[in-house]
Amino acid sequence: MEKVSKGIRVTGMQFEYDTQSPLFWDFSLNISPGSRCLLVGANGSGKTTLLRILAGKHMVGGKDVVQVLNGSAFHDTHLVCSGDLAYLGESWSKTVGCAGEIPLQGDFSAEHMIFGVEGVDPIRREKLIELLDIDLKWRMHKVSDGQRRRVQICMGLLHPFKVLLLDEVTVDLDVVARIDLLNYFKEECEQRGAIIVYATHIFDGLEDWATDLAYIQDGELNKTEKLSDLKELKNAGNLLSVVESWLRAETKIAKKKKTPIKTVAPKTTSFGASPFGASRHMGYNR
């Protein structure tokens, strides 16, 4: 009997780059199938790291701590190889199957890149090429950032994903391309029950697009809520104002916590400044 998908489930996650300052501590988050979840927070709050953990690019302790589609995001490599789990970030590269990362700025055509992805439904491919207004004759080292981004997005969407992780991927697109792409994402979620987790600082038009919101503050989940239940949004009318108020309040709290660094004058001894005298710096480095 096939296991019912539980979407994304993070339970009591701990993660650190530096053992002295863990980024996530006892972090939990649940995202159900069919959700379009906005990931919001200040720079350095942990949004990109969380997306990379969900994409299986970082290992965390415990196989069941980070579950994506009932599997371990890091250990179950078939999630990425099958195309069920897709990640698109800011860098000009794309993970294709299990082949690793390939650059998108060499002297080759958009056609070479897009048609080089195997096992693709040609109807889906043509739809994406048309949606993103891609000229297959584009030379990847000569086009603009926005055009190169369109090719990257197209390649990332060629396989029908079940979970799509987006890290500021629409930042280089013009208004029309961004709106068309967001509408396509919405259609994918509604028709196939796919999940999209989208980290962005551009909130225009997202009030009616997103279903859920997760606000991360310094590696902690400050708020997770259905967008339709968000009281601040009902009062403010637009999502930008709501997120701005959160981040400004966060900045004020951070400033209050900061204390001036006290400097202590070094103690003088009878040895004066002699280079042969012992010092606390020498003892510390020893």
Rank of each mutant, 00 (worst) to 15 (best):
I114P: 06
A177S: 13
G61N: 15
G7K: 07
A249R: 10
L136H: 11
M1K: 14
T269K: 04
D212S: 06
M59S: 14
L206I: 04
H75L: 12
N183C: 03
T211L: 07
M140V: 03
S144N: 05
E187Y: 09
V68N: 08
R280G: 12
P266I: 07
F271A: 15
L29Q: 01
N43C: 09
L38P: 01
E244L: 06
M13A: 05
T19R: 14
E2H: 13
D84I: 01
P22E: 03
I129N: 05
D208V: 15
E101H: 08
E244F: 08
D76L: 03
T77A: 14
F15W: 04
Y215S: 08
L182N: 13
F185P: 01
A42K: 11
Y17W: 12
P33G: 05
I216Y: 00
G97T: 01
M282K: 15
Y87F: 10
V151Y: 00
I114E: 03
K223Q: 14
H112C: 09
S109H: 03
A199G: 06
H201S: 14
T170R: 05
K223E: 10
E118N: 09
V264E: 10
H78G: 03
L51G: 03
W92C: 09
E188Y: 01
H159L: 09
G277R: 12
K57S: 14
A199M: 05
G272N: 10
K186A: 08
I202W: 06
D180A: 11
A73R: 07
K267T: 10
D135V: 08
A273C: 12
A199E: 02
F161I: 04
L182Q: 15
V264D: 04
G193E: 02
E90P: 00
N43Y: 05
G34P: 08
E16W: 15
Q67G: 04
Y17T: 04
V65N: 06
G62F: 07
